[in-house]
């Protein structure tokens, strides 16, 4: 074995052609889900504990294409999670920016945000329901509460950890605080802020669904619970898969934002953006070398 250690944990895995790789993935998929299906069909697995993949798939098909019952729940849940995300992120980042600008605020007020964070947000659900009622607002409030901290702490960290040389450079150029904030602090902090937003996105979805479990008349969370209470396990699992789909779509959205905004962290993007700016420059200014 000459290639031991050359590519870490994958050392020793034989390199396959793309078609072989695809076949391999298909095989593994088939073993897992085929085995599960056969187990369920033959009665080795209790349908009340783990329904067969095909029953779950059928239930999903029914929800989306026969009755269409899922769409409303889907939209409501996404709406609640997104609103909660926007509110939580706005509060978190707003507080972080205030704390970054004002040392007094940072010192005397920000510690409460930390206390707030170490209190498990989910545990506050009963209060939230009591304060905001059974409608959308309590879901949005819990989502906002659960997701506010990562953007807060990440934004604050990002804004405060600025290279000392960059500060000196801007000062020596006669920069105002405002110029420094917008031209240096904010862009420098963007990578860590966006990492915080990714965490917040997941948090918002969790908050929404937990609040729905507690009390709701609409949403994927309550749908799942209704199925479960009726021992309709394939329905429950279908709802779970819908939640995964929601998580995945929100995550993809965040990844896309990361890709678009943080172009200077990817080589292919830098080339793309660089040549775009070059075209723009020549269109506006002509070629100074000519």
């Amino acid at each position: 074995m000459s290639d031991i250690g050359s590519d870490g944990v994958l050392a020793g895995v034989k390199e396959l052609s793309p078609i072989q790789k695809l076949a391999m993935h298909g095989l593994v998929f088939l073993i897992i889900f085929g085995g599960w299906e056969v187990g369920a069909r033959l009665g080795y697995v209790n349908e009340l504990i783990l329904p067969a993949p095909t029953s779950i798939a059928y239930r999903l098909y029914e929800m989306f294409f026969v009755t269409g019952s899922i769409y409303w729940h889907y939209i409501i849940t996404m709406y609640e999670a997104t609103m909660g995300f926007i509110i939580g992120v706005s509060i978190g980042m707003g507080l972080a920016i205030t704390a970054a600008i004002s040392p007094v605020f940072r010192r005397y007020w920000a510690p409460y945000a930390v206390v707030f964070n170490v209190t498990p947000g989910i545990a506050v659900t009963p209060f939230i329901i009591a304060w905001f009622g059974f409608g959308w607002s309590s879901k949005i409030a819990l989502a906002a509460l659960v997701c506010f901290f990562p953007p807060f702490i990440n934004t604050l960290t990002g804004l405060l950890h600025i290279d000392k040389d960059a500060t000196e450079l801007f000062r020596s150029l006669g920069s105002t605080k405002k110029q420094f904030f917008w031209k240096c602090q904010i862009p420098s902090a963007l990578p860590i802020i966006i990492a915080g937003l990714k965490l917040a996105m997941t948090g918002a979805l969790i908050g929404t669904i937990v609040a729905q479990f507690f009390s709701a008349s609409e949403g994927v969370g309550i749908l799942m619970q209704r199925f479960a209470f009726r021992l309709n396990m394939d329905g429950s699992f279908a709802a779970l898969i819908v939640m995964s789909l929601m998580g995945l779509s929100l995550f993809t959205l965040m990844e896309y934002m990361d890709y678009k905004v943080l172009y200077w962290r990817r080589h292919s993007r830098m080339e793309e953006v660089g040549s775009k700016r070059k075209r723009k420059w020549f269109a506006e200014n002509g070629d100074f070398s000519a």
């Binding site: 290279d163 040389d165 960059a166 450079l169 240096c184 862009p187």
Partner: peptide, 16 residues
């Protein structure tokens, strides 16, 4: 700081 004085550091301190 004054405008007739410019500085350069060990790090390039460029905005990425």
């Amino acid at each position: 700081p004054r405008s007739d004085i410019g500085m350069m550091f060990q790090k390039a301190v460029l905005l990425d």
